[in-house]
Design a binder for these strands. Structure first.
Lengths: 126, 126
DNA sequence: TTGACATGAAACCAAAAGGTTTTATATAAT
DNA sequence: ATTATATAAAACCTTTTGGTTTCATGTCAA
């Protein structure tokens, strides 16, 4: 009896450039489907499908108002992305973080680490 | 004449769960294709294709050593993802950032903003 | 109440994605 | 020299994706 099993996760949802643009739009303000569509060269139906996918990923929330369906941004699921990313941050970002890991390994191995001020500055440059 | 025009960008590259797992593996240490494959239930050829996609997105780098091709993580392109994400951080995360924007708007409009210490603390709670 | 508007839903389509199997080629080991 | 290993490349297959067109339905306005 597994859970509903969302068909679209955040990673898939943001993989498409059109959907990313839609998110940007909705970040400005909530909009009905027709208005969203007016920003794109594709059909209203296509946009509707993108919205359904974003909706399944819970990146947007739609509510019906009269004959319109108004969507707004719901950014919370992006935290999952952020967490995923955070794992890799240790590997790139500034050279300092690389140094940090070298140091941690050296500390684990019981070595004493001494670096000069000059070395620090060389390492932290972009 | 336009640039090479990468077929796969970071967003697409990380959309697939298998590719995300491959990245995780390579974060531990560099590995030849056959070893990577041994961690998955799919064929070596399939893994090879995933690696090609990751390679196009420049998330991994492969070098030939003897008859093996050894891949290692190259996380730099993830900065693009981070930048993309950073735009949305203002919208979710802590309530404080929401407050921050309210304040900015109020400041724009020339209003003076005064909040109590208690209000600050209430707003910053997870 | 009769259109016009906004969306929903279904049927359809071509291309891309994610696999497989088969065949070829270079390198290593015996 | 021969065989085993590691990968590359090509052909093929099925499902998913991103789009379209067409038709149905609910709501607003005249």
């Amino acid at each position: 009896m597994s859970l509903p099993a969302k068909k679209y996760d955040v990673f898939q949802a943001i993989a498409d450039p059109t959907r990313r643009q839609v998110l940007r739009l909705l970040a400005e303000k909530e909009l009905p489907i027709s208005e969203i569509t007016s920003h794109f060269p594709i059909s209203r139906t296509a946009i509707s499908k993108h919205l359904k996918i974003l909706s399944e990923a819970e990146l947007v929330i739609g509510r019906k108002v009269g004959r319109e369906k108004i969507y707004r941004l719901h950014p919370e699921p992006l935290t999952e992305l952020k967490q995923w990313l955070s794992y890799y941050e240790q590997f790139w970002s500034n050279k300092l973080s690389v140094l940090k890991h070298v140091v941690e390994k050296e500390e684990e191995s019981g070595l004493q680490v001494v670096r000069s001020k000059e070395e620090m500055e060389r390492s932290s440059g972009q």
